[in-house]
Simulated scan of single mutants.
Amino acid sequence: MNSYAMSATPVPDTPTVSARLARNAMRHASERVIEALLFAAAAVSVLTTLGIVYVLVSESVLFFQKVGIVDFLTDTQWTPLFDDAHFGIMVLVSGTVVSSAVALAVAIPMGTVIAIYLSEFAGPRVRELAKPILELLGGIPTIVFGYFALLIVTPLLQKIFPELPGFSLLSAGLVMGVMIVPYVASLSEDAMRAVPMSLREGSYAMGATRLHTALHVVVPAAFSGLAASYILGVSRAVGETMILAVAAGMQPNLTWNPMEPAATITSYIVQVALGDLPHGSIGYQTIFAAGLTLLLITLLFNILGQWLRRKFRENY
């Protein structure tokens, strides 16, 4: 019995097991290499952000050693390149806020309406046609939008408002809003299509119309995604440069009236960066102080967007 049992016991296939272990080791090694590459790609973006923050902060510290923070925040004039220099950043902030407000007044309603139509009413063929057109609109260079605002939109607005000057925040803001519409519409439409169909079917079962379902069921359920698209639109408007540089006038002017010309933070950075200011001068350092202010404004809106997403995600 013992000899029979010993002869019946199968002999392990050692070469096959070794080959399998070798393949597993190679697969684990390749996965570790891929993981290292992915980590390096993610680290590049983080290190780039840290590098930008370091440059802005280090140069801004040198600027604030010469200009007080109180004067920087409260002065009502911005003439850093004049003999009688003033460094009131509120002049540039006002132009940035006004132009962004005009742009968002166009982009948010129009983008939301387009998103509701594409998500709830448009057929598959219309959606397949409209999405590439929106993406094409978002891919047009901003300098083209700037000259469109200056040469087309401004003369049309002057027929309605004869006192409107040749450069104005209104014209630049309107065109900038049209430019932002694809970003808001695309992200909002994706957020609405992610809403479960069961919510729509429950609303239809209660006798609601498609419009009532879209406005009172789908939009509230997708509001976290809508808020994210709105915050992206705000960041895009605040950081826009060429449209404002071409159509808004680049005149430092503390105003909250969109029908006046003014300079924004980004247009000032472009204007001064193209000059021949010596490195380390106070005028050169104003670029970084203005850039740091713009970074803080964008960071504030991003934090607000994350808070809104978290709040409405918990509610729904």
Rank of each mutant, 00 (worst) to 15 (best):
P141Y: 01
F223K: 12
L232C: 05
I231Q: 08
Y183W: 07
L137V: 12
G233M: 11
A205L: 10
T213F: 00
Y230C: 15
E135Q: 14
I152Q: 12
I143W: 01
M192T: 08
A208H: 07
T154N: 11
A222L: 08
R125K: 09
L211A: 10
G138H: 02
G173Y: 00
L226K: 04
R200H: 05
G233I: 10
E201T: 13
F167V: 08
I180R: 11
A208R: 08
M179F: 03
L164A: 11
P141M: 04
V219Q: 03
K131W: 00
A172G: 14
A191L: 12
E163L: 09
H212N: 13
L136R: 00
V144S: 09
P182R: 05
G233W: 03
P132C: 01
T154R: 06
S229N: 08
P141R: 03
G239A: 10
I143K: 04
G239V: 07
L226G: 07
T209C: 10
L211F: 09
G239I: 10
Y147C: 10
M206W: 00
F167A: 13
R236L: 11
M206R: 11
G138I: 04
S171Y: 00
P165L: 11
S171D: 07
L156P: 08
S229E: 12
Q158N: 07
V217P: 06
L215Q: 07
V181Y: 02
S186A: 07
Q158H: 01
V218I: 15
G173K: 02
V175P: 10
V181M: 06
L129G: 11
T154I: 08
V195H: 02
A194T: 13
P155C: 09
L151Q: 13
L156R: 00
I180W: 09
A191P: 09
L150F: 09
P165K: 06
L129I: 10
L137H: 06
P124C: 00
Q158G: 05
G139V: 04
F167W: 10
M192H: 02
G177I: 08
L156V: 12
E189L: 10
G146Y: 01
L134N: 07
A130L: 15
E189V: 12
L187H: 03
M197V: 14
L137W: 03
Y147R: 07
